[in-house]
Amino acid sequence: MSAMPGPRRRPAGLHPERGATDTAGVPEPRSGHEGGLVTGVPAQRTAADVYRVSEEQVHRARMAVARNALDSDDCRELLDMLGLIGEPGEAPPVRR
């Protein structure tokens, strides 16, 4: 019988190739302000923001649907059901 290796653990102490003040790999807080300090908690959305969808969000949603559709008819049907396509020259229903 062979022993199964356990989970890998990070050694205690400083990394031998990094200094004590190295912050590589530590993510920066994204948004939200609290007393002048930036926190990792996003700011609360207003009622108007809840229904606002950016053009990039629409594009990303369309691409996700297209990648996962079985064929062009399936893609068109899914985009229509999700309100991601509209009449030519009009904004899609999700943006109205």
Rank of each mutant, 00 (worst) to 15 (best):
Val26Glu: 13
Arg30Ser: 11
Gly6Met: 00
Gly19Glu: 05
Val38Pro: 02
Asp49His: 00
Ala47Lys: 07
Thr46Ala: 10
Met81Leu: 08
Pro16Cys: 00
Leu82Lys: 14
Leu78Gln: 07
Ala64Pro: 08
His15Asp: 12
Glu17Arg: 13
Met63Trp: 03
Arg45Tyr: 10
Ala43Thr: 14
Pro93Cys: 07
Val58Met: 01
Ile85Val: 15
Cys75Trp: 00
Gly19Lys: 11
Ala66Tyr: 02
Arg76Ser: 14
Ala3Phe: 03
Glu90His: 14
Met4Val: 01
Val41Gln: 11
Ser2Thr: 12
Asp22Leu: 04
Gln44Gly: 12
Gly25Met: 05
Leu37Gly: 08
Ala61Met: 04
Gly36Ser: 14
Ala69Pro: 09
Glu17Lys: 08
Arg9Ile: 02
Asn68Cys: 09
Thr23Tyr: 05
Glu28Trp: 02
Gly36His: 05
Gly40Lys: 03
Leu78Val: 10
Arg96Lys: 07
Asp80Ala: 15
Arg9Phe: 01
Ser72Phe: 08
Arg62Tyr: 00
Ile85Arg: 15
Glu90Ser: 15
Gly6Glu: 07
Arg30Glu: 15
Val65Ile: 13
Pro7Arg: 09
Ala47Tyr: 12
Glu34Leu: 11
Tyr51Thr: 09
Leu37Thr: 04
Leu14Ser: 03
Val50Leu: 13
Ala47Phe: 04
Thr39Gly: 10
Val58Ile: 08
His15Asn: 09
Arg96His: 09
Pro27Ser: 14
Glu28His: 06
Gln44Ile: 07
Ser31Gly: 14
Arg76Asp: 14
Pro29Arg: 12
His33Cys: 01
Arg60Phe: 01
Pro29Asn: 10
